[in-house]
Design a binder for these strands. Sequence first.
DNA 1: ATATATTCGGATAAAAATATCCTATATTAA
DNA 2: TTAATATAGGATATTTTTATCCGAATATAT
Lengths: 144, 144
Amino acid sequence: MFSKTCEYAIRAVIFIASESYKDKRVGLKDIAVKIDSPEAFTAKILQVLVKNDIINSSKGPTGGFDIPKSAMTTIYLSQIVSAIDGDSVFNGCALGLKECSEIQPCPVHNSFKSIREDLKLMLCSTSLAELASGIKSGSTHLRL
Amino acid sequence: MFSKTCEYAIRAVIFIASESYKDKRVGLKDIAVKIDSPEAFTAKILQVLVKNDIINSSKGPTGGFDIPKSAMTTIYLSQIVSAIDGDSVFNGCALGLKECSEIQPCPVHNSFKSIREDLKLMLCSTSLAELASGIKSGSTHLRL
DNA sequence: ATATATTCGGATAAAAATATCCTATATTAA
DNA sequence: TTAATATAGGATATTTTTATCCGAATATAT
């Protein structure tokens, strides 16, 4: 579904959001531990997320990553996914064909249509705020 | 969604089915051309499909691959997918967590539930016969 | 029987994804 | 202003996925 990189990205963003909700900025080391990801690799991913304006970063002591509370309700899963994996999840042919559309469909095009629509809808309507609230309340988890 | 290997597998099986429908056995070379896949790599994939009883093979001149007509209605997309990609599509956590279930869900577990159910249902109910019929009629295609 | 055409299977190679290391740069606090 | 701590980013390494090569085994037709 998503690349491993994208899985890390989503988990990291949710964790950062859950801490930002408590007005806490979090460092790379902490993030890597809390989402169980390789630290250096996670750093690379976070850089991409910063460049895509999904998270903020600040250097130096007391530095780290955060997300403004106001942004949490306007950032959706879809943004994280397309920042990391591009739009193949949204547009790509399930059988890997370059030319696959309504007028020239692959054999599974129609079978996948509604599933892809549902997926798209879900990704575009699930906000960071929702996802982080589960972490806050302890009803969802990010590692193991 | 699927690995590239699995995309080739599905395309190959559909092509073999569409030819078997016309009582034609098809060789590796022909398959690779018709589904636009690397020949040697496709050979490896076909071996796995043979081992999983999804397609038949026969050696020697006039040899090649085929699928009994009777089998076409009992082989489903799900079988091809799990033979090549395993059952990660069916069971795997969207965020890559090892432990993710109803009692210990990841943040997107519930959002993905219905989508995954729909996907599973579709894969388990779409038969090879259906997929091959689109190729026969020319309404669907396997390359480009 | 022999030549030929085909799949089978092991070894290897290339490419892409994932992961690490190290130095530079910025920021804070003392 | 200096020491300490954090992210940034380039270079490199490892692992996984994708792809190729080649000889062996097998079956067919002549």
